[in-house]
Design a binder for these strands. Structure first.
Lengths: 225, 225
DNA sequence: GGTGCAGCGTACCGTACGGTACGGTTCCAG
DNA sequence: CTGGAACCGTACCGTACGGTACGCTGCACC
C-alpha cells in the first residue's frame, strides 16, 4: 500500500474515469477548484474511495500527472528511412507534436499546478512532471539528433546542448507565456516547428546541409535563385 | 482609494519594507506561506494596515509584483557607440542580465505565484508580470535589434519574430526547468548569453557578420579536415 | 439465502485562512 | 493638555477544505 510513488502500471478503469474527471476540473477552474469534495462530486465517487485509491490529495495530483502522461505516449516510433529529408520530416513532426502538447489545456493546467506547488528546494510534482513529460521528448529528439550526426547530416559535440538549442528554437518563450495566461495569437504549431528546424539546421547542419539560406528579410518573396 | 490597479508611484518606505518582508516570505515558503497573518507577523505590522494599504490579499500580491519590478529597473541605457562589437557587447550584457534575473529567487517565486494563480482565461497576475517583467526586456532588446538592422549588421523582417528567436536561443528551456524546481547545474549566465548571441548572429547576421563559424563538433579538437 | 466486500453519499471534525473589529500606544497639531 | 490620526497586536468570525467515520446499497461467491 505504498501511495508515495504512483505505480507504473495503469489504474483501474474506474480510477481512470475519476482521474479524467479530476483533470477536467483542474483545467476548468485551476488548482483552487480541485478539492477532494469537488472531485468526488464530479466523478460520482466518495471521498473515502479517493483516499483509499490515492492516499491523499498529493497522491491524487501525482496520479493525475502519471495518468495524463500515459495517455500522451505511444507514438509511431518513426520510420527507419534515412537521409536529410527524412530527418527533417521526423524532427518537424516531433517538434509540432511537442508544441501542440505544450499548448494543450491539460498540459498547461498540470504544469501550472506543479509550478505553483514548487518551492525553493522541494519540488515534488515538478520532478514528476519533468520525468514523465519532458524526458521522453528529450530522449526521442536526442536519439534523432545523434542518428543525424551519424549520417553526417548534423554536426555538434554535446547532444544535450544541441537538444536544448533545438528546444529553444522551437518553443522559444511560448510555454511560459501560455503558462502566464497569454494566448498564442496565430502561432501555428506546424509552421513554427518547420521554422525552428530550419534554423537549427542553419546552426548545426553540416556545411552542405545548412539548408537553403531561408527567407530572411523578405518573408514570402523570391527564393534565392 | 482604488486598490484594483497598483499605483505607478512608489509606496511609502514602510510599505516597501512590508513588501520586502512579504517577498522574503514568498521566496522561502512558496504561496502557502504567504498568509496575511504571516506577512503581518514577519513585517511587524497589523493585518488591518495590510488591508488598508493593499485592499485585500490579491492587492498585496499585485503590489509585490510591481514593487519587485520597480527594483529591477534603472539600468545604464547602453553607450551610444556603434559597430558590430558594440552591438554584440550590449546584446550579450542584456542577455546575461536577463538570465540572471530569470534565475533569481524572487523572480522565480513571483512567476510561480502568477502561474499557479493563472487559469484558463483569467490570468490577473500573469498579465501584470508580463507587463512589468517581460515587456521592458522585449522593448530594450527589440530597440537594439532594430538599431543593428539600421547599421546593416542584422537582417530580419519581423522584429518580434527575431526577438523571440533571440529569446529562445538565450533562455531555451532554462526558465521552465527552474520554475519546475530543477536546478541549473553549471549553466553560466555570461557564457550562455555569449553563446546565444553568437548563434543569433549566425542566423540573422548579414553575410559578412555571421561571426566566425564557431566551434562546432570539435570543442577543442580537429576542425573538419 | 447468507456473508462479506467494495463503494457511494453524507455527516462530521479540526484546522487554517481571509477579512473585520477593538483596545491600546505613539506621535503630531493646535 | 487635548483631540485625532495612524498603527500595532490580538481576538474574533465565517467559511472552506483535508481527512475520517458511518450507514446504506449492490454484487460476487458459497
Amino acid at each position: 500500500m505504498n501511495h508515495t510513488l504512483p505505480p507504473a502500471e495503469a489504474y483501474s478503469p474506474r480510477q481512470n474515469a475519476v482521474l479524467e474527471s479530476a483533470l477536467g476540473l483542474l483545467v476548468e477552474g485551476g488548482e483552487r477548484a480541485l478539492t477532494t469534495a469537488g472531485v468526488a462530486r464530479a466523478a460520482n465517487c466518495s471521498k473515502e474511495s479517493l483516499y483509499k485509491w490515492f492516499g491523499d490529495r498529493d497522491g491524487l495530483l501525482a496520479a493525475m500527472i502519471t495518468f495524463q502522461s500515459s495517455k500522451v505516449k505511444a507514438e509511431p516510433a518513426g520510420s527507419g528511412s534515412t537521409g536529410r529529408g527524412a530527418l527533417v520530416a521526423q524532427l518537424t513532426g516531433i517538434a509540432a507534436t511537442l508544441l501542440k502538447v505544450l499548448a494543450g489545456d491539460v498540459s498547461l493546467a498540470l504544469n501550472r499546478l506543479a509550478i505553483g506547488q514548487a518551492k525553493r528546494g522541494e519540488a515534488d510534482l515538478g520532478q514528476l512532471l519533468r520525468e514523465h513529460g519532458r524526458r521522453p521528448i528529450e530522449t526521442r529528439l536526442s536519439a534523432l539528433l545523434e542518428s543525424g550526426r551519424r549520417e553526417r547530416l548534423l554536426d555538434f559535440a554535446d547532444t544535450r546542448e544541441a537538444y536544448r538549442t533545438l528546444y529553444g528554437l522551437i518553443v522559444r518563450d511560448m510555454h511560459v507565456r501560455l503558462l502566464l495566461g497569454d494566448s498564442l495569437d496565430g502561432e501555428e504549431p506546424a509552421k513554427r516547428a518547420a521554422q525552428g528546424i530550419k534554423e537549427f539546421f542553419r546552426l548545426y547542419g553540416t556545411e552542405e546541409n545548412t539548408g537553403p539560406a531561408p527567407e530572411r528579410a523578405g518573408a514570402g518573396n523570391e527564393r534565392t535563385g
